[in-house]
């Protein structure tokens, strides 16, 4: 379809920024909706306002940072097992 090197809509960084801000806006709207509509909660801190929003954000960041730490531990060159395989033969 886009075989000609015609710059697409997404190639413009401003459009990307717009998408991101749109995302932030939807997030804010969801918080407002929680405030307006309210929701059920089954246990302790789950009932706090914005629990799921905060959990989503924090958990995500936590996972990414933990993964970065993990990478330092487990990262090996791409040929790590190949060397082994070659030596086996």
């Amino acid at each position: 379809m886009n075989r000609t090197p015609r710059p697409g809509w997404l190639d413009d960084p401003r459009n990307v920024t717009r998408i991101v801000y749109g995302l932030y806006a939807v997030c804010a709207a969801l918080l407002v909706a929680e405030l307006v509509i309210g929701r059920k909660a089954e246990f302790g801190i789950e009932a706090w306002f914005g629990f799921y929003a905060v959990l989503g954000f924090i958990a995500y960041c936590g996972i990414v940072y933990a993964a970065k730490a993990l990478r330092r531990l487990v990262r090996r060159p791409e040929t790590y097992y190949q060397d082994q395989d070659v030596r086996d033969e």
């Binding site: 995302l23 929680e34 990414v64």
Partner: peptide, 13 residues
């Protein structure tokens, strides 16, 4: 609402 919050805030992160 809760699920959308979870997903979208993660995406925002």
């Amino acid at each position: 609402i809760t699920q959308a919050q979870l997903v979208l805030f993660a995406a925002a992160a």
